[in-house]
Design a protein around this nucleic acid. Sequence first.
DNA 1: CGTCGTTTTGACGGCAGTCAACGCGGGTGG
DNA 2: CCACCCGCGTTGACTGCCGTCAAAACGACG
Lengths: 244, 244
Amino acid sequence: MHAYEESPFTRKLAAFVALSKDELSVLERLHQRRRSFRVGIDLVHQGQSEQTAYILSQGWVCSYKIQRDGTRQIVDFQIPGDFLGLRSVLLRTSDHSFEPITDIQAAEVSAADLLEAFAQTPRLATAILWAASRDEAMVVEHLVGLGRRPADARMAHFLLELGARLLLVGIADKSGYACPLTQYHLADALGLSAVHVNRVLRHLREDGLVTFRNGHVTFDDYDRLIDFAEFDPAYLDQAGPVLL
Amino acid sequence: MHAYEESPFTRKLAAFVALSKDELSVLERLHQRRRSFRVGIDLVHQGQSEQTAYILSQGWVCSYKIQRDGTRQIVDFQIPGDFLGLRSVLLRTSDHSFEPITDIQAAEVSAADLLEAFAQTPRLATAILWAASRDEAMVVEHLVGLGRRPADARMAHFLLELGARLLLVGIADKSGYACPLTQYHLADALGLSAVHVNRVLRHLREDGLVTFRNGHVTFDDYDRLIDFAEFDPAYLDQAGPVLL
DNA sequence: CGTCGTTTTGACGGCAGTCAACGCGGGTGG
DNA sequence: CCACCCGCGTTGACTGCCGTCAAAACGACG
């Protein structure tokens, strides 16, 4: 145990940058305003110009865009330790919505808080920007999946990526993880229909690669799954940021 | 005519933020190291850890990722006035490649140059970060298209977006624009096969919506095309950034 | 026990990929 | 100057992945 409470966010940053005591205490202070939200009720709604961001400490969230015809595309999932709406604080645009997938706990961070923290410890600023850049790399990888991977490999890749992310904040192990997503979430994220998601999951399960059931993902044959998905985690555990 | 040479980059930023003389001259200085590149020869290659970025002043570039099986996905196109590899300067990761689609001219910008410019004029920093955020919004919109739009609407949307971008830097008008892309580029960007791109283009042309031919895009019925593509330019011409 | 959300499965159809062939224009070398 | 080649565009036939529609099973919850 540490003297300070370790949030998933701190844990994630610490995995890539050695943080000093000062920096840790600034991080602490960012976590002051704790808030809770209920599953299903959007935090930020598309088009809204919100000046607040959140650091997610518990639960899952997804960010998505709705189209005129009612279909939706999930852009990314946020898990404990992830920043939420960082861009929309710094630049006042929130072009998508955030929906809690479970009840969540998050620390509210205003633009002012953030800029103050940045001013105090530039290295922390770099670390946070690095995390943002990692998120962007994930969006790009997601895009590649939608454009160029067949449904089954796309699903496999997605489940592996999620596992790697959860591992980093300590809520997964190599054998699998708890996952609150419904098959509709998977469908909206992977650009498939819910029916086809089900077929794909069955296929992966029957092939002994991975099992998604009862809110739990189990890797039945990790190596073969990685091979099947052509999963290359290079874009995730990149070396830490240049420390200016 | 202005006293200074107006680069497309300057022009783009100026469309959203009123720039002072000082800021304009700092921008000028960023354009000092002019370089040329030949079509087809990658500027930066996937995995390479490059510390240089470029401001594109002439020609077109695409950024893409190649997969193990040889298929490629184009993530974005860069046109004059766009930044290229901004993230990879600030954080030393270039997770994709850049290929010139035409011969190009670009100004080389080192991390040091950029940081110096930022220190001199913080408003400029904000403006550039805003431009980066706009690029990211485009990637997200691209992702939505791949996940949730049928091929023809995806194509229509893409051609409209490109038109809007080109309009901003003054190399398009409402009726159309010159476009050096091949149908293979379109295929790799839109997640389609080249054959199907051809079919879709024919369909759009025969429906009197838009014509892509001989390196030129012509909007045959702009309003109907916008409706067909469900194109909502909100994510493009957002209000300028918060000026810190 | 009924309802609702989620998962599961089957039948059918369509959008888009693959394969294959051909036209066309520009560049290159004989 | 012509023959050839190569990249790009175009079209048709066939196939298959995946969406839609429909119905049923299952569990949680009131």
